[in-house]
Design a protein around this nucleic acid. Structure first.
Lengths: 254, 254
DNA sequence: TGAATAGTGTCTATAAGACAATATCCC
DNA sequence: GGGATATTGTCTTATAGACACTATTCA
């Protein structure tokens, strides 16, 4: 019913003939969301892929996605996709970029608003093992720093996945965004369980950045940042001196 | 005609039935681009506003924008808007964020992909004075650093503009993005003419950041960055020792 | 006891901020 | 010369990287 009287008489204006005046006559692109769901495992970034069952690109792997429903906020659509395709809720979720190349979908004009989500590896791997027609592909980043560009998705065996549409670009952009935000936003914690050791946190940073980081200064920076809170609990089941576990502390008064 | 058969049969998805097969039955929102065109003048950030002539929000000020045309790439739509509404071409242009709150337009679901563009103050003020029903509003940022949030738009007299739709949020987000990118991306140059002095560059940075920056270290950093190339030409028409003019040098091999 | 990592303290190199001194232009 | 800003150089301070050393756990 909302759409019934849809007649976007969007302002006309003189020098520039605003093409909205007759919006009803315009082709309206379809709108989707795609979600780059990221986690880590065995020292590599992983992303959640779904096997397509229908054309176009039937049988190829793709990011979880779906059409935006009437009246549905964009981020809600992304959250819905995460729930329906991965069974995950409450994750860190942020808008990434909107992809709209005219030929990105061979059927019709489809514009996709890409989001990325972060999940701790424990929840991620449990779910990944539970949902059929799904895989947790390893992200191989062929560039350093924040150069950007597409990435390769592989299985643990090394087989390469060829993603549908422009989804490899979406994953690449998500990695670039992660690398850029890591220094000033608390995103490393989103990839870890509730409590973790400083070494685990460092390894997450190294995985995201794709390079080793200096242990000493990393510890100093993190402890000085005020974002960490000691749990008082020590690591167990390791054959060396156990490390103190920390948790992320929201009240970071920069 | 597209909207005629609007029947939000939203997707069914079991394991992963891509809802595209029936895309034709979905309500398709209208898609627009809005452009935050930014420049500087008299030590303040400015943005280009257009007076709306039709409802909704008739007579209020808004960002230049327009509907995306069939087959038109998103960035091309933003560039077209800049040409048609401001007569400016060849500017730095980058996607900012996609706004899609269900009620952001009272008429119908309209999703807008916001871009921001940067223009040097000379071109900007010439054009601003030449296009009717347009103003170069002063951006007042009520927050520090990259806190983010809406901003206030005022005239030089101090009168406050109340922007249509969620356009004030778009401007605020553009400022936040600018502040965030300033340190590692060559965007300060985009707000300056071909050649400029170090003090002018510093003032642009101060205007973007909304705070003074240390002169000594700013000079050192800029000269050491390899992004600047001396023109050999000295500033003229100043009643003090003239400064050397520089130009932006693309070949910055970090 | 030995292997392995946790955690602490110290030294050095680098970059930012502060400040002083000199240079150059126009009035 | 006086006023104003440019440009250079030095000193201080904060932070990152490197390294040495001690601590603690389990096999």
């Amino acid at each position: 019913m909302t759409s019934r009287k849809t007649r976007p008489t969007h302002a006309p204006r003189s020098p520039a003939p605003w093409p909205g005046a007759e919006a009803g006559r315009f082709e309206r692109p379809s709108l989707t969301v795609d979600v780059v769901l990221i986690s880590t495992a065995h020292g590599a970034l992983r992303t959640w892929l779904v096997r397509r069952s229908e054309p176009p690109h039937a049988d190829r792997w793709a990011l979880p996605g779906g059409f935006i429903q009437p009246g549905e906020p964009l981020e809600a659509a992304a959250a819905r996709v995460l729930t329906s395709k991965a069974g995950l809720t409450g994750l860190f979720l942020e808008q990434l970029y909107t992809f709209g190349a005219p030929d990105r979908d061979p059927r019709a004009r489809v514009i996709s608003i890409a989001y990325y989500a972060l999940c701790d590896f424990a929840r991620f791997s449990v779910r990944a093992g539970a949902v059929p027609e799904t895989t947790a592909a390893r992200i191989e980043v062929p560039w350093e720093g924040e150069t950007g560009g597409p990435v390769e998705l592989t299985s643990d065996g090394g087989a390469r996945f060829s993603l549908a549409f422009d989804h490899a670009d979406m994953v690449g952009l998500a990695v670039k965004r992660l690398r850029g935000k890591l220094d000033y936003a608390p995103i490393g914690f989103q990839l870890l369980p509730e409590s973790f050791t400083l070494l685990e946190l460092q390894q997450v940073h190294e995985t995201i950045l794709g390079r080793p980081v200096n242990k000493d200064s990393f510890r100093r920076r993190m402890l000085a940042s005020g974002q960490l809170e000691a749990t008082g609990v020590w690591q167990a089941d390791v054959e060396h001196r156990p490390a103190l576990r920390y948790r992320f502390s929201r009240r970071s008064a920069t």
